[in-house]
């Protein structure tokens, strides 16, 4: 089975974000593999352990330096990479179209993974758009996945620790959630090996994506400023508790 993993090259969540030209971030900072995509790669490797004939292909739409993220995915176990290179930032409609076109051109997916969201744009929708374009069933925030007899049985996390269980016919698209597995971080030999794995580069414009009527364009980015002015609550435990209670009642009015 060919397993495609759509990965994203995202700024490190700990990095400071600087806004330039009103609607972009200064990209001179550390970028890495989107954390949810790590779960997707780990799960694909687990599936391949049971189906050794499988091939895992990591696909990424990004600038040239997104190859680094493909290398991370390969160090974690992907067999090869596909980089859809573009100088521009794309919304999730164009992204899904590009990923779909690149995957179709490359092979025959038995399973397509994404993370349940990217930690930069936080759009939460690319997996559904890929599914709609390929006419495949989709599940997101998947925390358990069993592949059996031509179908996928998935648990999708809801709030409060509960989950819904769905059955999807294969091929299907899976948005990996945080409870799916514990990411398998690469060893040094894995990293060395990943440097020798092939990455094929495709130009976004060669995929001849039809422009969509719909779109989402960032017109402005502003830093989210914190205006909190901390006040200390002093006293022994009893006094502090009493003061908190009063704040909850009189100021926050939640009691």
């Amino acid at each position: 089975m060919q397993i495609y993993i759509c990965v994203k090259h995202v700024p490190d969540s700990a990095a400071n974000i600087t806004i330039v030209e009103k609607n972009r971030i200064d990209e001179n900072l550390t970028f890495l593999l989107n954390p949810y995509d790590e779960h997707a790669v780990t799960e694909a490797v687990r599936i391949k352990d049971n189906l050794p004939d499988s091939e895992i292909v990591a696909v990424c739409l990004g600038k040239d330096d997104a190859e680094k993220t493909l290398r991370s995915a390969m160090a974690m176990g992907a067999d090869r990479g596909l980089l859809i290179a573009s100088d521009k930032n794309h919304d999730s409609i164009e992204t899904a179209q590009a990923l779909k076109a690149a995957i179709e051109q490359d092979g025959n997916p038995g399973l397509i993974f994404t993370g349940k969201e990217s930690i930069d744009a936080e759009g939460m929708q690319t997996m559904f758009r890929i599914g709609a374009l390929l006419d495949l069933p989709v599940a997101t925030n998947v925390v358990n996945l069993d592949i059996e007899a031509g179908r996928a049985v998935v648990d999708c996390a809801l709030s409060g620790g509960t989950a819904n269980t769905y059955e999807l016919s294969l091929p299907c698209v899976i948005g990996a959630g945080r409870g799916l597995n514990t990411p398998r971080y690469p060893t040094f030999p894995d990293v060395v090996k990943s440097k020798k794995k092939p990455v094929k580069k495709i130009a976004f414009y060669d995929l001849k994506i039809e422009p969509s009527k719909a779109g989402m364009k960032i017109v402005e980015l502003e830093p989210l400023l914190q205006k909190r002015e901390p006040k200390e609550i002093k006293g022994d435990a009893g006094e502090v508790a009493k003061k908190i209670l009063r704040i909850l009642k009189d100021e926050a009015r939640v009691i």
Partner: peptide, 26 residues
């Protein structure tokens, strides 16, 4: 057709221009 959401781990507020026949908002 402008919408505001947070991006980059809550570090920025993005104003997004949405286009199309139908707009969906969460």
């Amino acid at each position: 057709n402008l919408v505001k959401t947070s991006q980059y781990s809550g570090k920025t507020i993005a104003t997004i221009k949405v286009t199309g026949d139908v707009l969906v908002f969460g």
